[in-house]
Design a protein around this nucleic acid. Structure first.
Lengths: 239, 239
DNA sequence: CATTAAAAAATTTGATCATATTCTGATGGA
DNA sequence: TCCATCAGAATATGATCAAATTTTTTAATG
């Protein structure tokens, strides 16, 4: 049994940080807030492959304490979003072609299954929500708004994961996204949104038709296509 | 495990702990040592599904400081080996049948690919090493030695991962093992080693024959078979 | 008067921070 | 080029505060 608490302490800088930096409702632990902030930055490109991430830097930037920052970094390192760089340093990983191949395989396999599950449970309301996200995505592409495109694309996939109701597979897919995000961001930042294609409409159509297999194939193709484009663009860049 | 209870020291106990308790070469950071120790405990069953893991408890048991323990827990939580229990507490997750299904799918898909890659690169020396591990495994089964069986089984799979030379997929497979370990341990602890079967010899034979596809199929079957057995045993237990 | 439920204290545990210590890489002199 | 020294960054600890659980006390009801 527990009872309501008295008003919140005033002296911590964290509240300030939580509210100002990251409009997440206060009350979350600082390590969680730091984690989410860093995660966003990695996913949507404030941090680029190869970039160093220092504890001190984050403490200064976020106004957070040392322990929460350390915990957030450990978590992201465990998820593969950051890597230990030699001794005591961490940075955003740079993906080799072999890494991209691994990611393409894993993402394709996992997302395929997630969409297969999602297609069996999807409701008309959810279909409408997907269409709405996809429209926003198309609009962002048309405008060349890379940031919005990245967020909408992520949101579309996340919505599918949610429908699948498979927490472990969702966690895996989310982790893979975290590895892939920085590279996608680099490619889009360099090439813009002009050449972007996806299979979202095909997937939605298959879901409407109650055809889980086709939906799964569509999203598998979507993933593979995206990964191929990134691999190509990153590879071109090297010359 | 016998850890010194008293902590009336002045200098750090950690070196002592790192060297004596966990024959890891000294010089590793404490958070790494704590992580590895906890990981072992989860994989090989000192911790059972549902069991609470407290920071204070680990500090007392391991003689480690608070920050390293917290970091290790964050890391394992990110890997799915531990879960947040309501408010602020963590415990070893209890897998539902749906969770087991997800795990079976993911493990099968990932390991299949890893073995496929491994079979293309395997050397005679490595084949010999696999046979050696498998022999130790059979011996453990014959003796009913659950602990050794679990370790050998893990070692066999890890050896395959290593041969595949695919760090991201290996990391994924390792993480999945961490989720699956506690339940496997429970089942083996309850039913002994008598009913255990595997496809290791078929996989080795396929690798010798330079047949990556068959090797992949064999290990996929191995994984599925194992997961099914665990699911069955856990389910039976509930009645 | 006993039983039970709510309230309050006490205890345990988690979260955060300030600080001391250790390590790494860089700089500069021999 | 090599070694010593030094600044800065990471690691680790214990103190402090907040939150949640457990235990004890209190009050109300039959």
């Amino acid at each position: 049994m527990y009872f309501p608490k008295k008003s919140y302490n005033v002296m911590t800088l964290n509240e300030d940080f939580a509210v100002k930096e990251n409009n997440v409702s206060a009350g979350l632990p600082a390590h969680e807030t730091v984690y989410r902030t860093l995660r966003e930055r990695i996913l949507f490109g404030e941090l680029t492959p190869g970039q160093a991430v220092t504890i001190q830097g984050l403490i200064d930037q976020l106004g957070a304490g040392m322990t929460p920052v350390r915990e957030a970094i450990r978590r992201l390192t465990a998820e593969g979003a950051l890597v230990f760089q030699g001794n005591r340093r961490v940075c955003v990983p740079i993906l080799s072609q072999a890494n991209l191949d691994e990611l393409a395989f894993a993402r394709s396999a996992i997302e395929k299954q997630l969409v297969f599950l999602a297609a069996q449970r999807v409701t008309p309301t959810e279909i409408a929500a997907l269409r709405e996200i996809d429209a926003a995505l198309d609009s962002a592409i048309a405008k060349g708004d890379v940031g919005t495109y990245l967020r909408c694309n992520y949101e579309f996939h996340k919505a599918l994961y949610h429908m699948a109701n498979a927490p472990i597979l969702t966690h895996l897919a989310d982790g893979l996204w975290l590895r892939y995000g920085p590279s996608l961001r680099v490619v889009c930042g360099r090439l813009g949104t002009q050449n972007l294609v996806d299979q979202h409409k095909q997937a939605i159509a298959a879901m409407v038709n109650k055809d889980p297999h086709s939906a799964a194939e569509a999203m598998s193709a979507d993933v593979t296509q995206g990964m191929d484009q990134v691999a190509l663009a990153l590879h071109l860049q090297e010359r």
